[in-house]
């Protein structure tokens, strides 16, 4: 006997992502899911964003990591509020883990919630967390072949931050190629070249964040 299901795999995650999305809508929270390889600069970028925008918008952070809460601690040192999720080996965050973290964060009081996903450029992109927008970070030292090697990840991005741009003259990194390769799979993403350590280019990213957040607020 054979049965046809044609059922979406990971539907349980999608159900829970829907729940998160409703939560964000109801409370007027703008949520970002930040995905990159380990070491691309997610924590540094989020910390700097909080330092520079913290007095304008209230930002809460959900930190995903395989183990330890060092990243959440760094966010707190930057003056932000953070909740750590330890995934105990899992290579991605699930919508359910985020749902629980939102409670612990008092997320309904935030203007913006930033989720730092587990450092991995492939797996997290298969899991919708219910975010408003998805941000992919790519740092210069990782090399200029990443968009073409991981097209699925870049295809789903709303924003691509090319981080560590301060290093581009020291490393063989073909910026034109990266921009072209991102455009092949994703003609619509906003792309910003930034340095989370020197601050170069961060203003454009802040403008985007404030405008999008504002758009989310006024859509209500």
């Amino acid at each position: 006997m054979k049965i046809s299901l044609n059922q979406k795999i990971l539907s349980r995650n999608e159900e829970c992502a829907k729940k998160n999305r409703i939560f964000f809508d109801e409370h007027g929270v703008f949520c970002l899911n930040v995905i990159s390889s380990p070491g691309s600069g997610k924590t540094t970028t989020i910390s700097r964003t909080i330092k520079d925008l913290g007095d304008k918008i209230r930002i809460g952070v959900v930190e995903g990591d395989i183990k330890t809460d060092t990243d959440a601690q760094k966010i707190r040192d930057a003056g932000g509020e953070a909740v750590q999720i330890e995934t105990h080996g899992a290579c991605h965050l699930s919508a359910e883990q985020v749902y629980n973290a939102l409670k612990a964060l008092d997320a309904e009081k935030m203007d913006v919630v930033i989720i730092e996903n587990v450092g991995n450029l492939v797996c997290p992109s298969a899991f919708d967390l219910g975010e408003s927008k998805r941000v992919i970070l790519l740092s210069v030292p990782e090399g200029d072949d990443k968009p073409i090697k991981y097209p699925g990840t870049f295809a789903e991005a709303d924003v691509v931050l090319i981080n560590k741009i301060d290093l581009k003259d020291y490393i063989d990194f073909n910026l034109e190629r990266v921009l072209a390769d991102i455009r092949v799979v994703n003609p619509d993403a906003a792309i910003f070249q930034v340095s989370a350590t020197t601050g170069e280019g961060m203003d454009q990213w802040y403008d985007w964040l404030i405008n999008k957040n504002g758009a989310a607020q006024s859509a209500r």
């Binding site: 054979k2 049965i3 299901l5 795999i9 073409i148 097209p151």
Partner: peptide, 28 residues
């Protein structure tokens, strides 16, 4: 990632297939 006919890198994607569990077969 280029057009198979003219090598252009400008194109639109159709929808990518989702992850699906299509069929299950059971012992008679």
């Amino acid at each position: 990632p280029a057009c198979s006919q003219c090598d252009s890198m400008e194109f639109d994607f159709k929808r990518d297939a989702p992850l699906l569990l299509e069929t299950i077969e059971f012992e008679e």
